[in-house]
Nucleic acid binder design. Sequence first.
DNA 1: TAAAAATAATTACAATCTAGAATGATTGTC
DNA 2: GACAATCATTCTAGATTGTAATTATTTTTA
Lengths: 177, 177
Amino acid sequence: MLTVAAPGRRAAPGPKETEIAFLLAQLGAFAAGQFGERAAEAGFTPPEAGLLRLISRAPGQSQQQIAAQLGARPSRLVALVDGLEQRGLLERRRNTEDRRNYALHLTDAGRDAMTVLGQAAAAHEAAIAAPLSPAERRQLSGLLARLAAGHGLRPGIHPGYRHLPGPDGPGPGPGRD
Amino acid sequence: MLTVAAPGRRAAPGPKETEIAFLLAQLGAFAAGQFGERAAEAGFTPPEAGLLRLISRAPGQSQQQIAAQLGARPSRLVALVDGLEQRGLLERRRNTEDRRNYALHLTDAGRDAMTVLGQAAAAHEAAIAAPLSPAERRQLSGLLARLAAGHGLRPGIHPGYRHLPGPDGPGPGPGRD
DNA sequence: TAAAAATAATTACAATCTAGAATGATTGTC
DNA sequence: GACAATCATTCTAGATTGTAATTATTTTTA
């Protein structure tokens, strides 16, 4: 592709048309990092927090189903579930009808953890949105939601960028512009 | 948003207060992934594209200076610069005054590459902003810029989240909410 | 019903990547 | 001139991930 003819580029007239995409990537990385810190304070990694939340929202799913929603490989979930199960936060329940898979459920302790993570998420949201007025927040929230919907991103699902065809993964590296 | 059954919450009254932070992370990951695909088509990884752009913007900097701006370890730049230098896109010039460091400059081929990457970035921007009207784009761009400024993010720099104190890096994994 | 294919979870292995500490060359300071 | 500091580089250990192989169970096929 690389369509865009755009031969004429001026010297450096300040902010360019290339703005929204970069700002989204920049702020997204920042927000994810900040949340990572809060999650760490609560004793969880972001993947763990995401997994707990997904099970909380829809209990009883198999690991395959969850892996599909997360865009992760099923084998990646094994260690994740192991760790949280050993900490007594969730449990694998045998499915009596199909004993190949497990149904994942939160324990009481897991629900308590979700409460803590929920508070952390609320504090995180408040901190991120802090520079904006309530009216601006509503405005921004609406625009972002429309943008996400327009690109087919599902409301509750955070698709870590995965399996790109390119010669190198995207990685959180130096980034783009 | 980690809803947490908190006391007063109704069934499922749609979008919650915890919105902006998650949408930013979600859209940011999406935008970064999309850009990664375009960069790959042009023959570059996102880190490479970011490095080229930084040198293009401010030629003659040392690797340490660039590493500081990118939030990367200096040792990480070595391989990156090596690869681009072997492809003839940039060159290490000896600093006659201080022969410890190199001054990084683009070659003509490097500038051509920047043109291609600039077109890719423009196409990317257009694709990301596509769902919004011109007026909405201006609105969103302004809100995001204010948000970024409010959090001390510098205009052209993309701070990949780095060295978190927590037990586990954030990583692009299953994500949060 | 027996055999073969498919599916879920797991394990094993290889490839990649990164952080961090050493190394060598050069410069600045006292 | 000796010592500390700086820049680029190399090296090594550790972590992370993707792919393929393994085991148990179910479904399909002959």
